Simulated scan of single mutants.
Amino acid sequence: MSLAVWFSLLTACVVISFTPGAGAINTMSNALSQGWRRSIWGIVGQQLALIVHVAIVAAGLGLIVSQSEMLFNVIRYAGAAYLVFLGIRLILAKPAVTDMEDETGIDLREGHWSMIRRGFWVNLLNPKAIVFFLAFIPQFIRLDEPQLPQYLTLIITVMVVDVVVMWGFFATAARPFRRLTRSVRGQRILNSVFGILFIAVAALLVFLH
């Protein structure tokens, strides 16, 4: 991959990562409920999903998904249902103790693996991401050159940019509002806001083609 092509890839990745979506909402929600540092675990899960998306496209399966209305819809509705589930769970969530421990001293913070799994499924169950990568990747991959180094360069660039944007921008943008988590009322407001945002993204996934 030439330097000019890589700079084009880098620019495209920055623009894409700054586009708000379920991943950004998940990151900001994690930063508020779990703290800025711990929000990285959800971002890790989202990056694992990006690797799967690129692998699906590289293997030619992305074309199958894009051309099969039934398969596309199955993934689309599954993704929307998962986002609605996350939204409702947030809205109905019981406010946590502000110091993240209950009266017995048990840590109430969400586990790393739970955050990774949630981030993974939030990003993976988005068929439009597969279709997007299907249109995006060929612009930066030359068929007359070795494929593996190009795909490695692409996925590393996509992941690094997305981590920097998610953690450095979206998670950081949520930090000033973390003071609201110190009260029960503030937690309920934030949970409701992000719950509604998850449901709104689900609605867009279902109704916008």
Rank of each mutant, 00 (worst) to 15 (best):
D107R: 06
W36Q: 11
L205S: 11
T157R: 01
V201Y: 12
F140I: 05
E110C: 07
L208V: 14
L86V: 08
F120S: 11
R182I: 07
D102V: 06
L71N: 01
I106E: 11
A174K: 13
V160G: 01
Y77P: 10
F140N: 05
S33F: 10
F140L: 07
F120T: 11
V164Q: 05
L61D: 00
L9G: 06
F120M: 11
I56K: 01
D107T: 05
V193A: 07
F198C: 12
A93L: 13
A78Q: 05
T11Q: 08
F85L: 15
G111E: 11
L143I: 14
S66H: 01
I141E: 02
G62D: 06
A59N: 04
V201M: 15
Q46N: 04
D162E: 10
A80S: 11
S68Q: 03
L190Y: 04
S66I: 03
I43S: 03
V193Q: 02
I88C: 08
I25G: 08
P20Q: 02
V193G: 02
A135R: 00
V122Y: 06
F133M: 07
I130A: 00
T181H: 05
D99M: 04
V52H: 04
I199M: 15
G35T: 09
F7D: 03
R109K: 12
V165I: 15
F120G: 12
I130N: 00
F170Y: 15
A81F: 13
P149Q: 04
I56D: 01
L90Q: 14
Q67K: 12
F169G: 05
F177R: 06
L124N: 02
L83S: 11
E69A: 13
V5P: 00
W41G: 02
F136M: 03
V54Y: 04
W36V: 09
L63V: 09
A81G: 08
G42L: 11
V206H: 03
R188P: 00
R142V: 13
A55Y: 00
A174C: 13
F72M: 10
R175H: 09
G87F: 03
S33N: 14
T11K: 11
I16W: 06
D107C: 07
R89Y: 11
V160H: 02
V74L: 12
V160Y: 01
R117V: 14
E110R: 10
S2E: 13
Q139D: 07
Q46V: 01
F7G: 02
L148G: 02
D162T: 10
K128S: 11
D99F: 00
D144W: 09
L204G: 14
Q47I: 14
V65F: 07
A58E: 07
S192F: 09
W36N: 08
S2Q: 09
V65I: 15
L63I: 07
P146A: 00
F194P: 03
M159Y: 00
S17C: 09
E145N: 08
A4F: 07
L134G: 14
G23M: 09
L205M: 15
I141R: 03
L63E: 11
L83K: 08
R185S: 13
Q150C: 03
S114C: 12
D162N: 12
D107S: 10
L86Q: 08
A4W: 04
F170L: 04
A22W: 01
C13G: 02
L92A: 12
